[in-house]
Structure formats: C-alpha cells, structure tokens
Design a binder for these strands. Structure first.
Lengths: 347, 347
DNA sequence: TATTAAGAATACAACGTTTTCGTAGGAAAA
DNA sequence: TTTTCCTACGAAAACGTTGTATTCTTAATA
C-alpha cells in the first residue's frame, strides 16, 4: 500500500523545495520553464492530485454543499438532489447528503457534524418532527456562524434564509380546475393535516378553485390525514370509509399514495376511472405514470427546484464579503400532466 | 458573521496555551482540575466543536465513506443507501453520496475527487457504461492507494475487493418455481442483455427452474432488452410484439418496469391477471405494491445489502495494519412476496 | 542548603497546501 | 569595480488539531 503522493514527496524526489513544486504545478511564472516541465512531467507520471482536505483547511472553504433531507426513498427528493448535483457540478461544488429520517435529533446531529468544517452551506428540507417541535435553533445557529442555508419544500417562514417552494396553492388550483373543466362538479380532496405547510396550501388551492367556479365547499368532502410515508392499514381504512357511499365525480389528492390507495378502494366499490370518478394527484413519482389507469398529475419538477436551491446557495457562498444580506423566496411552477384518470376537456 | 470558535481563540481568551485547551477538553490528567473545568465551561458556553477538516488532515483519516452509485432515483439504491447510512452511523462514520448517472467519465471523476482526502473508502455500484467499457483503472488505482473498496450489485469479478451481491440466480429460480407451483407451464421471461450480470444470472435461474420441472426452455419465450431506466417507446413496443399472440400462462421479469409495461400490454390484449397470465417480477420498489393487481415479487432487501457492504468496508478500515488481505463475497438472500398477480398454490 | 521529584503548563512538530517574503547569483548598468 | 536589477528559487507562516518533548514551579528529600 503505497502512500499518496504529496508535494513534499515530489520535492524530495526532484531535489527542489516544496514551494517550487507547488508553484510549478500552478504554472507560476516564478519558476523557469525547465524546472516547471520537469516537475509537471513527474507529477503527471505519478498521478499527483492535491489533497482536498489540506486545501479545505488552508482556504477555509470546502466547496461542498450539505444536503439535509428527511427521506431519500421519496422520489421527489431524489429528483431534487439530482438538480442540486447538476448545478453544484457546474460550479465545481461537491455535495454531501445526509438523511434525517424525519427525526429531530438526527437532523440536529447531522447539521452539527457537517457544520464543523465539512460544508460551506446547507440545503435543507425540514424533518416532520422539527416542524412539529417548532425548534429551529440548529438552523439559526448555522446561519449565525455564517453558513448560508437554503430551505426547500418543508420550510418555515421565520428563518432568515433563501427559500425555494413549489407553488402549492397554484398547483392545486390548477389540478382542481382541470377536474372542473372536464365536467366534475362534486370533487373531494384527500390532503394532510394543516401543520404540514404543503398540505395546507394545497387545500387552499382546492378551495379557491371550487370558489372560482361558484361551487360551495363541503366539509365532508375534505379528508385530512397524517402525512406518512406509506398508506396501509389505518390510513387506507380512513380513505375507504371516506369514499364509501360518497357520490363524488372527482377526487384531488395531495400525493400519489393517497391517489392510488383511493383508486384501489374506488375500484373495489365498482367505480371506474375516469368515467365514474376522475382523479388528479399532486405528484412526483413513477407510480402515477405506470398505474392503470395512469394518473393525471400536478407535476412538481423537483430537478428544477434542486437547481434553483443550489443556485441560490452558491450565490450566497460566492458573494463578496461586504454585500448586503438579502433573502429570496423562489417559487417553482407546477405543470399539469394529463393522463388517463381524467376525461378530455370538452371543447 | 462571527468566526467559528477554535482552540486558538479559546486559548487567547482564557490566557492559556493552545495545547492546554486541547488537553483540557480531552480530559488529560496533565491539566489541573481547576484549569480543566474553567476551559470546559468556556467551551461549552460558546459551543465549541472541533473542526473536522483539521482532524482529518491530522489523523489522515476522515471517518467518511464514499458511496458511488449510478442513480439515486432507483428505489433499490435508496434502500441500499439507507442500510449503509445506518451501519455507518452506528460506527461513527459519515457518508458521502455521489452519482455517476451511469456515465463512465463521471464515475472516474467522482472517485478521484473523493479519493483525494475526502473519504477513507468506497462503496461502489458500477455504471453501466463502465461495465461496457471494461475499464476499471479508477478502481484498481484507488485500491492500490490503500483505499478499501466494496462493490455491490453491479460488480466485476476481477477486482480484488469485498463484494456484496443479491443471489440473483437463486432469486429468479425461486420466482419462476413459484409460477410453476401455481400451475403455470408456459412461462416467458423478459430480461436484459447478458453483459448486465444480474440479467444474465436471473436468466440462468429461470432456465434452471424450468429444467428442474423438466420443462424445455424455448428460445422464443426469452426476450432480452437493453437495461434502461424507463420503458417507453422502443422498449415498450418490443415487449408488446414479444407478447402478441403468445400463448403464455406465466411471465417472469427481471425488474418492475418490464413487469408493469408487460402487464399494460396484456391488459390491452384482453388478458387478465393472474387468471390468464401470472406475473412474478424481480423488484425493489413501490410500483409492484401499488399496481393493480399488485405484483408478486422477488424482493431484494437493499437495506440489508447496504448494511453488509458498510460492515465489510468498516472492517477493512479498522483492521490492524499487518493483517493479511482477504476478500469476502457476501450474498444477500431474496424473499418471495406473494401478491395478487399470481394464483394461490394448489395444495 | 542543595538536589530531586512531582505537578502543571507550554513549545513544537506534523498533517498538505498556498502564498508572501526573502535572497543568492548573475547580468547589465554606472 | 561597484551598484542595480532580474531570475529562479527557498524559507516560513498559516489553516486547526494533537501528541511528544520541554520548561517552569513548587514541594519534598537528602
């Protein structure tokens, strides 16, 4: 197991000083053409690569972005990560990903860990438990220490930092209006409890869409569930009970899982889609695409979101010292993707 | 923006030397009880945390594991990552994830990047292009430099390192035998070209299962496709043509996407599942669970795989210098998950 | 009283870089 | 011959740690 090549070793080998090697490799004019070539040839031959850790220490910069997210198994997050990765790569940054598993303590731990030298800044989507606890000291602390933070998706308004959001209200509105345009008039929604921001906003969009058509919002057509990562047992049962006997012709759900679970139960009740009930779901995933019938969705563009978040962070990281603090909140538009779970719009 | 607290700053503030601070914080007996308490109190008050970068440089250890995978959007990989994360956390290691996007150059780049000080070792699943190119210098180089490498899933035999594999042959065999047990006799397989190891092995398992039932393997019941990340257009068409007019009663596929695409076409052909055709798929994902009918799958336990890979790597990282090199290949068993796409076994 | 031992703190080197400053030696100018 | 100015290189500091070696007190011993 040979040791990694360092400037020191090259210096010793070629009988010059470390500084000379360093300068030669960085093409400094201080070093004669001859020596420079000799050193570069040697370095290339033995495949010298500077040690990033040493560079980080020296520069007090790591060129690394830390991502802190609740769950990687969500397709949405994976697309966001891809977006961040892309943008980071384009600007020569690396990316470290850590998972909070929706656990507050782990989120705090992860941040502290990364804050101690491993990253220049953070891109964060908060754990559910954190939102519940309403405790954001780990975030404010990082910010106080001069670490830029960008929050996305699961954010909290009070924290002074850049934010990237899906335009949830507008998206839900668009989705529900699509149901309305295709002729649905009795539209239910399956959403999350209000403490989950996105659920709240999407519910709002649903209500606004109905109102814009002059349709009265009926409480018993709204089902609020805990936002969990699977929808079996209890959750599935609630949906079943909610749908049973309801004479709806449209259904809007805030995520894919609610949609397919509902579809299953509707199927059991002998209802067909889209003829008896049309479905539109907020979504990020593969499920809707491959489901039979494939689901019309309000698509979230996680990749764009990631790119935007990374862009904001990198801007902050590279702004001159004396620039005034200023925080942006960016909204990522959603797109309606028409598939088989809704009828064609009547012309 | 206040600067991060360092030993030096504490030393200056308390008017002692840096060494004293360092030692006090590490509870060295060299420092008097008094001074120790004073320093620890100060450090705690101002929330001192040692700088990991400096530690890494000093110790020539980062306590970080680098994961290099083709795609994070695959549910399978996300479960593997979770397993690695878990095990790493338990042993006080961090995890850095980078994506190759199935691109050879990016894989090489990523490895070089991480190899230059950022990680102590690697857990790798090779990019498709890398397998195609048959060029593994980046791996052997890392290994030569004393960086332990563990390969999983997409491996290559020649590289001297630990490996973790799904028992693909056995898994496929189990899946196909399940079809046989439920009464299927004319079973097709949709698999990948042989250069993808897992496809090859799963095809082998399929053949062995048939043979164990004394059923002749028919070439026209085997469809080999390029292993791609989506199955639309060309790929979907091939499957359609393959299925058209075939009088099969069972279908085994090496991944979920092939399965649902096939299911769609069978649906179009008016065939019902599982009555006309039963389906078993190798799988890792959510799709099978929520598909209608839900798919019987050979499940892969990515989390276990991740845990095992991390365990092997950490073992290598922490073994004494003089221990003999020895490479393990671990197999992770698969489990058959019965769902609605197959009939009940006749007693 | 002089020597030693202990206890308590500090100095220093090292990890691998980059960069600022310094200087040796030679050529050109005075 | 002396002075000046390049050219080409090297020494040293710094980033934040830690471990070894060293120094400085003070108290105990001969």
């Amino acid at each position: 197991m040979k040791r990694k090549l360092t400037l020191k070793l090259i210096a010793k080998e070629l009988d010059v000083s470390i500084s000379t090697v360093s300068k030669a490799l960085r093409d400094s004019a201080e070093i004669s053409e001859d020596t420079r070539q000799k050193i570069k040839a040697f370095a290339k031959l033995y495949n010298y690569k500077p040690n990033n850790i040493a560079l980080s220490l020296k520069n007090r910069k790591t060129r690394t972005i830390g991502i802190i997210i609740p769950q990687i198994v969500h397709h949405f997050f994976t697309t966001v990560i891809r977006g961040i990765e892309q943008m980071a790569r384009e600007h020569n940054y690396n990316v470290i990903i850590t998972l909070s598993n929706n656990d507050f303590d782990k989120e705090v731990l992860n941040m502290e860990l990364l804050a101690n030298g491993s990253t220049d800044g953070f891109i964060v989507s908060l754990a559910k438990e954190t939102l519940h606890k309403d405790d954001f000291r780990h975030l404010t602390e990082a910010i106080d220490q001069g670490m830029p933070v960008v929050m996305f998706d699961r954010i909290v308004d009070e924290i002074p930092c850049d934010k990237v959001l899906i335009d949830d209200r507008e998206g839900a509105k668009m989705g529900v209006r699509h149901l309305l345009k295709t002729g649905c008039r009795k539209i239910a929604i399956i959403t999350t409890e209000d403490y989950v921001t996105i659920g709240k906003l999407r519910t709002k969009g649903y209500i606004e869409a109905l109102e814009s058509y002059g349709i009265k919002v009926e409480k018993e057509l709204i089902l609020k569930l805990d936002n969990i990562d699977h929808c079996e047992g209890e959750c599935s049962k609630k949906i079943k009970n909610f749908l049973k006997g309801k004479d709806i012709d449209g259904l809007f759900t805030v995520n894919e899982l609610f949609a397919v679970t509902a579809a299953k139960h509707l199927h059991e009740f002998g209802k067909s889609m889209p003829n008896d009930v049309s479905i539109v779901s907020f979504s990020d995933g593969e499920l809707s695409k491959h489901f039979i019938p494939s689901l019309t969705t309000v698509s979230q563009h996680g990749e764009l979101m990631g790119r935007k978040a990374a862009e904001l962070l990198i801007n902050k990281l590279e702004r001159p010292e004396d620039e005034v603090e200023e925080y942006t909140t960016a909204y990522i538009d959603t797109t309606l993707i028409e598939r088989e779970s809704t009828k064609k719009i009547k012309k």
